[in-house]
Nucleic acid binder design. Structure first.
Lengths: 102, 102
DNA sequence: GATTTATATAAATCTTCATTTATACGGTGA
DNA sequence: TCACCGTATAAATGAAGATTTATATAAATC
């Protein structure tokens, strides 16, 4: 995977994976531990840790160790805002499609 | 490739490819023919047509045939706006990195 | 200190997809 | 209608990456 977000396509690549995007969505509302993310996503622990590593290296999330647990959160609200801005495109294309379908 | 943008991760997947993103960027300013895009991107004609097909199916661009040529453009300004919003994240992370580096 | 829990990483596998190569199709002009 | 230009598509190829499996590390509890 990409080691550092140096281009816009790299950022999109990072967000293109459903598991990673799901993690970003889960971390929007609150700070969560890895095990909490494993439970919420239904993915294996190594897989979640793997994706967290990528998100971490890219600077989208950051983890803080408290005892045995590591809690992750989004590094900045702007991450979420940009994602939401793109979601409107999807919503728009859906309503567009349904309008055409009628 | 994805046949229809039904989820947000699909949209990111479509935009994650450098060639496709480059095409979207080129189509922001103006309407262009396939051959113009081939020249501007330096990619092969079949490859550009292939990516245009994906962008077309996903509803990000639309083509209009005039004689032998097909001219493509973004379907909506909101496509470009969403992309620009994400670019700010990349720019932000760059300045962040340079700030840390100092 | 040994065992268990929480997390991280490495190697292996398997799928997806970007690109190339070859070809077809529609329009245009001789 | 024949040759050519612009564009589209299909098959083949190769690389990238998502997921699994196995294992390592670090902290907590006994």
């Amino acid at each position: 995977m990409v080691c550092k977000v140096k281009s816009l396509s790299d950022l999109f690549q990072v967000l293109a994976d459903p598991t990673r995007l799901q993690i970003v969505e889960l971390l929007n509302s609150e700070c969560r531990s890895v095990s909490a993310l494993v439970k919420a996503t239904g993915r294996s622990q190594p897989l979640v840790s793997h994706h967290l590593r990528i998100l971490r290296i890219c600077g989208l999330v950051e983890g803080e160790r408290r005892g045995a647990m590591t809690y992750y959160r989004l590094t900045d609200d702007s991450v979420w805002e940009a994602v939401e801005r793109c979601r409107q495109l999807v919503i728009a294309s859906e309503t567009e499609a349904s309008r055409i379908a009628v």
